[in-house]
Each structure stands twice: as C-alpha cells, then as structure tokens.
Nucleic acid binder design. Structure first.
Lengths: 342, 342
DNA sequence: TTGTAAGCGTTATCAT
DNA sequence: ATGATAACGCTTACAA
C-alpha cells in the first residue's frame, strides 16, 4: 500500500540511504536535500514499515504486559484497568506499544513464553500479580529478556515496583487500635501473592508494636474475592471481634454483607477497614475506610523503569539518570465511616 | 541468541528451505529428512524469528484493541477487564496476540493511527466504546485495515458485535410495569455511545408498548459514572417516581445512595433496576436487579469475526464458514431485591 | 522431495 | 553529504 523507501528515493532523485537518514532525523543531510526528500515523502504518502525496521534494528518498540492465570478470579477488580492505563500511558509517552498477555492456564503461559517471548516480538515484559513460585519472570531474565515485576519479588535479581502493602496495612490496623478497638481480626488475601502476604505482615506488625498478642483464630484466610470475604466473616463472627482489617475492598464488602445479615451494624458493632480504595468502597453503606495504593502510577513506573533499561541497552549512553530497580510506592489511609469516629 | 534457519540447515545437512518446510509443517518432506531436521532444531534450540517471518509473510498475528479517550472516566468498570479477557482468550486460541491501545486524547488517537496502524504492525483492530463521530474505525476500513466495532455502528460497511441493549432495557422496564409501578423514570447513559442511546430507546419502547405517555422530566441524563447517577437521582427525587430504570449499575449505586440519604427505601419507596450485572450489583443493599450482558463473549466474538475475515484474506480459501459481520448478543434480566417482589 | 535464489523494507557500514 | 551494498531471518516461486 504505502510506497517503500526505494520508491521515495526515486521520486526525490536520491538514494535509499538518504531517504532513510531523513526519516530518522540524522544530522548529516544537506537541508536542500532534506527538503526535497520530505516533499517526496509527503507526495507519496510514505510510511515507514515498522516490521522491516524491527528486523533491521532488532527492536520492536513493543513491550508485553503479562498477567498469569491464577488471578483470573479477581480480574474484574478495578486494579487491572488502572494498571493497564498507567502502563499504556507511559508506553505512549515513549512511543512504545503494549501487548497484553493473559493466561488461563500454566500451559498457555509456557506456550506463550515459547512463541511470543523467545521469538523476538517483545523488547521486554512487565509481569504483574504473579504468584510465588511462578518462574516466568526469572526465566525471562535468565534468557536475557528485560523484565520487571509488579509486586514484591524475593529474588535479588528481579527489579520490581510495588506499593507499600506492609506499611498500609500497619497504618490501618494502628488506626483501629488508636480508635480503641481491642479485638481486631483480619481477613487475609491470597498468601501466594506478595500483596496478600504483606498485608498480613502489616497487621501483625501493628499488633506487635502495640503489644497486643496475636490470636491466630482472629486471622481468617481469604483469597481477595468477595465470596471469600463473606466466608471469612462468617468464621470470625462467633469470635466477636470489634474490628476487622480486611485485605481488600471486595472482601470487605462481602464481610459487611455478613455483618448486616447478622443484624449487626458497621461500625457500631464491628468496625471495618478495607484495602485498595476501589470505587466500590464508596458504593457501600457506610462508606469504607480503606488503604489507597497508587495503582496507575505503579503501572506507569514499571514501564518507565523497563524502558530506561532498554534505552540503556541502546547506543546512546544513558541520557536519563538510571532508574533504580526496586521501587515501593507509598500507600495512604483513607478514613471514612466504616471504622467509626473513635 | 537463537540460531537461524541457516544454521539449523547446516547442522541437518539440508537447505534452509527444507528446514522452513519442517517448521511450517509443509507436507512434502520425506519423513527421514523431517526427523533429521527436527533433531537439528531440538539440538540447536532454534526458535523461528517472528519479525522476520512477518516481513516475509506480511502478517504479524497481532491485532489491536483500541479504546478511545472519552471512556476514560468509566474505565474502571468491570466492563473493560471482561472485554479484554474475552478478546485475549480468542486471540490465544488462534495464536494471535492482542495489542492494547488506550487514548487519552484525540491527538494521541491520530498519532497512534499514523504510527501503529498504518505501519504494518497490526493485522486488524477491534474498536470498542467509540463515541458517535469517532472516525477511527471507518478510516481504518477505508485504508484497508480489517476492523470490527464493539457497540452498534450506523455505518453500513462497519461490522460489529453488540449486546441487545434495546431489548434488555425494554425487558427491565416492562418488568417494572408488570410489577405495578406507574411512574417510571430513567437515568440515561451517555447519548454519544450507542449503548446509552439504545438503553434509552428500550425504555421508551416499553412505555409505548404499554401506552404509558412519556414524561420528559422523568428522563435524567447521565454519563455512566456513579456521580452522574447521584446527580440524576437528585433531579428525579422531587418528581416522586416510584421506580427508576438506571442505564448502568454504577449509576444505579449512585442513585441508591441519594435515595438512602433522603431517608427513602429501595424498593419500598422507589424501585431500582440497573444495567450490566457488574459485581457491585451484588455489593449493594438491597442487591440490584439488573440487565446482564455477555461482555466477555462480545470481546471473544469480535476477535473471532475479525480473524475469520483475516483468514479469508489469506491463501487458504475459507476453511470455516464465513461469519456474519453483525452480531447482537442477547441480554438477560437478573431479578434481585431492588425492584421489589410485586 | 529438495535446493537455489529472489524478495520483504529497513538500517548501517564503508567508500567516495 | 551521499550512495552502494551487505546484512536482518524468513517465505516461496521456480528449478532440478
């Protein structure tokens, strides 16, 4: 459809190389020639062919966003749209594109790894929400594919962006403690995800700081889904906690339903704090006190860091300052009615 | 990193073409040769280089999912994750990949159109949630880029997948009518989106069918956001409707907050029906009666249709039956407590 | 059945 | 400053 470099060259009466130089803004072109070529480009409607360019440069300007199978149950969380939006915005800003890979099975993950990752179509990947034990990112790194993780990763060599789940959870629980609650329970997130583990860790830290003994029975395991929130709350109810720190807003909403059905009131009978500050935190009654994390910024930063690394691999020696490879973004407590006013 | 076809050929003691044939499962290869080559492939860890292949075949096996700027305010709706999941699943099934393009401005849209769409990196695109007047899809079609729309599109030449918004809305309102409500208001969605327009159309149809005169004051304009739901309901409240059909669950939740704040009860004082059956429909109290649309299937079908078209353009003359180019998937009324039990 | 060779549209090196 | 020319790794007539 679009003419090739060669055809433009003919029109302008120069060589293909010269046209290429003009297209790529190389300095060494006489401005007369440049003008002539630009005219020919306009006239012919020339568009550079990205695939050909990629073959020659070994760069596609496409990075992958990879989300493993296991989170499929919580994929409707606003978390993912926000992450994607942050990531695509950073991509756009640098004229990169984002390829989305979701897996519904480990087999698919492997198949995709082979077919897409090792085949040169991606300049790098960001891996989000992978459970502990998922080897995708370390495999990629080992295979020399630039990669970054979203969430905390234990492996030294893995760069990542995370939000301060521990600090956020601790903040939330300490807030409850300050408010005078004594019997503070928690419904945890998936323990195979760093976010789930860290939010539990934050809960434990807060108790420890305030010398409150940890009662294991007050720790109900959840998996971030709303229904696991209802299950968790049902287990907790007979133990009569006066407050519950729930590791996600979805679960908190499930928990509040159970409380309501038991004819108890939030926060009068049981105070609730969630995590995420998702839009639904405002939809429930009473509005949910929750911990906000900068999801969009996490997506954006992950891409920025990845790209800075890619540029570092390019010819031009580091134009920007090298970004560090581990970033933990602060979380923030958003106080609403569900935790009481003290 | 990975060896080339040529190197594999050397190892196997055959020509590059033969290796290519084996890689691509061409029939005319002696099985001995095939075995020899396969061994060489295994031994050498050969991976076909997608970019090179794309240059030769003029196919990338990548399709774009394009979502225009304007929906950015409702992007956290579960709608988008579900759509993306459906789309990526269909892609995976055919060994295609999905490239995600979100725009935050019309300029970005144009820039991306030029840079990505016209430059050969995409075999086709699916455009979702574009407002009336957005020319991206027609432009693509005009430029010979296979494309499909999600939502209804007025232009004859534009293939699309939509859900039955009109029917769903009509069903919802007729349900309210059957339940005995007389003064049924509506909060509309964005009228520049076909879904918003069609849901209003369905509301009007239901009234017409039951010979209920349309009271324009009972039609409150919304834009699908929760806050527009609260605004709409505030306008409606003084008019004392006994039921409201709200064109999205998010808006319905906003509306319910207003009702609650006015010390009125759902459904006793005002019945509410939403649209989407998003997870939050279950989070509110009382649970929301709503119209379910098969979002994930829409994403999947859009991709299927697009790919069937792409194959049709390939060498092999139509292996599957040609899929029609306009599909409207059925919606379904999910009755819960918010509309009363009659 | 297999090999030869001509593309695909760029970039990049090396002369000039 | 510009032009040849050799890659980049693959597919695909066409020949043998």
């Amino acid at each position: 459809m679009s003419p090739t470099l060669e055809e433009v060259a003919q029109i302008a009466g120069v060589s293909r190389s010269t046209v290429s130089r003009v297209v790529n803004d190389h300095p060494n072109v006489r401005s007369e020639t440049r003008a002539k070529v630009q005219e020919a480009i306009r006239e012919s409607g020339y568009r550079p062919h990205s695939v050909a360019r990629s073959l020659a440069t070994n760069r596609t300007r496409i990075i992958g966003m990879v989300i493993p199978e296991s989170v499929t149950t919580i994929f409707t969380d606003p978390y993912f749209p926000l992450l994607l939006r942050g990531a695509t915005e950073s991509c756009s800003a640098h004229q990169y594109q984002l390829l989305l890979s979701l897996f519904t099975s480990r087999d698919e993950e492997n198949e995709m790894y082979e077919r897409v990752l090792l085949n040169g179509y991606l300049d790098g990947i960001v891996v989000s929400s992978a459970p502990r034990g998922d080897t995708l990112i370390t495999r990629a790194l080992d295979d020399g594919i630039p990669a970054i993780f979203i969430g905390r990763h234990p492996d030294q060599s893995v760069p990542y962006v995370d939000s301060d789940n521990i600090g956020g959870a601790r903040m939330a629980v300490e807030h409850l403690i300050r408010l005078g609650y004594h019997r503070i329970a928690t419904i945890t997130g998936r323990q195979d995800l760093s976010s789930g583990k860290d939010r539990l860790e934050g809960y434990q830290q807060a108790l420890r700081i305030h010398a409150i003994p940890l009662d294991e029975r007050l720790v109900a395991p959840g998996d971030f889904t709303q229904s696991s929130g209802t299950d968790g709350m049902r287990k907790l109810l007979p133990l009569r906690p006066d407050a519950v720190f729930v590791a996600s807003d979805s679960m908190a909403i499930g928990a509040m339903k159970v409380i309501r059905e038991a004819d108890l009131r939030v926060p009068d009978d049981i105070a609730i704090v969630g995590f995420d500050d998702s839009p639904s935190a405002l939809a429930v009654e009473p509005p949910l006190t929750t911990v906000r994390q900068p999801i969009e910024r996490m997506g954006a930063m992950a891409v920025e860091i990845l790209l800075s690394r890619l540029d570092g691999m390019g010819r031009e020696p580091g134009q920007g300052p090298a970004l560090t490879n581990r970033v933990v973004l602060p979380t923030e407590l958003v106080v609403r009615a569900s935790c009481g006013i003290g």
